[in-house]
Amino acid sequence: MNLKPETLIKIDEVITHYPEKRSAMMPLLHLIQEEVGYIPEEAITWVAEKLGLQPINVYEVVTFYPMFRRQPIGRRHIKVCRTLSCALRGGYQICEKFEQEFNTHRGAVSPDGEVTVEFVECLASCGTAPVVMVDDDLHEQVDGAKAQQIADRIKAEARQR
């Protein structure tokens, strides 16, 4: 497992937050996923060793929490809220819009590798429904026009790379 020195420093620091090392499981997985983009197989044994656990103890956590991924995703992650308040305000149509814009379907990486569009459960911003998270950023009251703007910006940023 080759992690950047700064990630390793953060990992060693976060372990000190807890009286029992095992508690650092989720923080470690978050840090690894932030650097690698997903949780590769070797990370499971690496985390187990780091925390003095068996790989199964890590594996069961990775497979339990929806945010931990076992495969890479697109360079950008579009998460559309699926739950009731957003659906009442058009969340399903917004998700379809993104699927069309990037020629993909829910859960899959777009053919150009640029985005993964996904439905997620409640993002706790029901008052400004429908909401969409692009990577770490929340977009509120996303109607068709706003979804178009978001998609255009992602495409423009991709061209600049």
Binding site: H17, R22, S23, A24, M26, N57, F64, Y65
Partner: peptide
């Protein structure tokens, strides 16, 4: 200290939350 969850609703249940904070399934 701050401890980040990872998308599981059941972590709102206080004993599930505690299990999660201990580094286990919630």
């Amino acid at each position: 200290h701050i401890h980040r969850g990872a998308g599981a609703y059941i972590c709102g249940e206080e004993t599930g939350l505690i299990e999660s904070l201990e580094g286990k399934r919630a």
